[in-house]
């Protein structure tokens, strides 16, 4: 199973924010945001909740499980 996300879409929905702008708001590096978007880095619960609070959306709307065995998304 992998963790998918709609972070990129969330950024664009919130005034076409850049990765750097989001990183500065959340208090992480741009590289971290980039890696999360690419699915290379799985954020902690704390960071996920901070992103959720920043975008004003539930965590499940930003992150979802990709079940490769079932070939379907978890949302």
């Amino acid at each position: 199973m992998k963790l998918g996300n709609h972070l990129r879409r969330c950024r664009f929905d919130k005034g076409e924010m850049t990765q750097q702008e989001l990183a500065s708001e959340i208090g992480v590096t741009r590289q971290t945001i980039h890696s999360i978007e690419k699915g290379k880095f799985i954020p902690s619960t704390l960071l996920s909740l901070r992103l959720s609070r920043f975008f004003g959306r539930p965590v499940e709307e930003i992150f979802y499980i990709i079940d490769e065995n079932r070939k379907e998304r978890g949302r």
Partner: peptide, 11 residues
């Protein structure tokens, strides 16, 4: 150190 680095950097 976690106050100056983010979780990816520590990982």
């Amino acid at each position: 150190i976690s106050d100056i680095l983010d979780e990816k950097q520590i990982a």
